[in-house]
Design a protein around this nucleic acid. Structure first.
Lengths: 212, 212
DNA sequence: TAGATTGTTAATCGATTAACAATC
DNA sequence: TAGATTGTTAATCGATTAACAATC
């Protein structure tokens, strides 16, 4: 269906386009040219036009792009017009923060279940949801058919759980554990978030900028 | 001091090398070849050798790399041999999760102060630290000289605070707010973490893989 | 129509991979 | 010494930028 395979660099820029277009829309912009958008985002107009043309012709010569229209197209490309049911494994600090902080529905997902192995956390209310015991995952999945999961559990537990989760029908992982999840199954998507690596990068930048 | 400017692609791989070498060390590895490390990390041996050679000659022909030695060198490059004092702005869900979840000292930082504008949170204990009122930031900075800050506050507050923080001596930002912080001041490092964008990317991957 | 700006092809730049001489 | 593996140069690949004809 889509043209040639889309490069990873382009994919990583899509959510940012979507975000900026949302801001523009909120600020009353009706149209925008690639040149103007490039300026606002710190990119080049060429790159923006190349990126959009991976997916279709969204603009109009002599005019530019309609902000609302373009945002809608990119939203559809990103799959934000539907919500994938998602479960959260791990109701510790980070899991709870994500559950309450992230706007799942506007990111293409719907958080439908939270699980933890710690009996002290089971039964706890987080937003609309109540933390369930991990042992309930299988039956929950066969009943509710979530296809995405957030991993906020210790590394060892994650390594054990992943195969099971795939067998329960999970096809996408948002992985916050301390290892690089590399699933060999095709048709399983993984987004690794390494907060530690991110902070370490900042340390490099801070320390390498003075030594000149 | 350093050779030519290091490319961003290389910098982003450094924390991952450091992490993998730590695992290898913990598993009793003494030496490793670029070929073997490449296999474990899903890279090519060429790339690994190119990356390391940006910073020096850490290996030995016919032998490979000493795991502990190499890890130490990369740690030094990343600035992990010292700890930069860091403050946290925003003691909401995400701020609290980071404060308790992140191993700052092994990432080159030391969390020394937490601030929030919400009087309900001021006074709260998070680990060893007690949440202070935002109004105390300036005097805290002049006394304790932190040079890094985590932003876990609303977008509007962040836009207002950043300039002030720079004037107080902050030179590195770990930014979790909903906008792309682009500081024009040179010598100020920024690491933007967009959890929303990350989840949105996962939505794209999940939705584009089926349509074939 | 004239002016503006896209969609798209061609040129450039940078990053990754391959190859191999140096050397432990 | 022979075998292994690095450090480094050269070749390839992919992504970004520039240019311009098409067209609104």
């Amino acid at each position: 269906m889509s043209k040639n395979a889309i490069s990873n660099s382009v994919i990583r820029r899509l959510p940012r386009y979507y975000r900026f277009l949302g801001d523009l829309e909120a600020n009353g912009y009706v149209r925008i040219s690639s040149r103007e958008l490039a300026e606002k985002m710190g990119l080049t107009a060429s790159q923006i036009r190349q990126d959009f043309n991976c997916f279709g012709e969204f603009g109009q010569q002599g005019y530019g792009y309609n902000v609302t229209g373009l945002r809608g197209e990119i939203g559809k490309i990103l799959g934000l017009d539907k919500q994938t049911p998602m479960i959260l494994l791990g109701a510790g600090n980070l899991g709870r923060a994500l559950a309450s902080h992230i706007d799942f529905r506007n990111r293409g997902f719907d958080l439908v279940g939270i699980f933890d192995a710690n009996p002290d956390l089971v039964g706890m209310k987080i937003g609309e949801l109540t933390v369930m015991d991990v042992s309930a995952i299988e039956s929950f999945c066969s009943e509710n058919k979530p296809t995405a999961a957030i991993l906020c559990i210790p590394r060892e537990s994650a390594e054990k759980e992943v195969e099971k989760l795939i067998s329960y029908g999970i096809r996408a992982f948002w992985n916050f554990t301390h290892y690089d999840l590399r699933v060999t199954h095709k048709d399983v998507a993984v987004e690794n978030v390494h907060l530690g690596d991110s902070l370490t990068t900042l340390s490099y930048c801070l320390n390498s900028s003075d030594e000149k």
